[in-house]
Amino acid sequence: MLPEKLKSELTAQIARVDHPREMAIDVINALQDHYGYFSDEALAQAADLLGMSPLELDELATFYTFIYREPVGKHVIHVCDSLICWMEGDENLVAHLCDRLGIQMGGTTADGLFTLLPVCCIGYCDRAPAILVDRQVHGPLTIDALDRLIDTLRENHS
């Protein structure tokens, strides 16, 4: 369920703009932050708030990279696989991550902690190979640095 506070905040925000539709991504992001991902329930609620149909919102939600229509772990790791990061060896990072977390690209670890996703160039080519963890950039990464990062994230939860 959507907390009343968040709901009224969003309603107020939507009321401030001339066209509710322009708030679509913001509302989706807010509900995604709340639910962890943009679930069907969130979709219905966002549609309600914005006066759009669920399909109209799904048309947007399924388009964008950073809107998750399927459940994700607590930490979403986006590994940049574009040219420069690829040149600097992102494939090794990915292989290592998959191995270490025991998941494939797109998968979520059994403990629900990590989801691994590829992403197009994130604009940190000067720090290649780079990854985003919860939209925070990390790079340039070595396998050791990556291991330390995963360990830290794990420790924070144990």
Binding site: T62, T65, E70, G106, L117, P118, V119
Partner: peptide, 8 residues
């Protein structure tokens, strides 16, 4: 195709 997939 899973159109709702998180994969880009």
């Amino acid at each position: 195709v899973n159109v709702k997939s998180n994969l880009p």
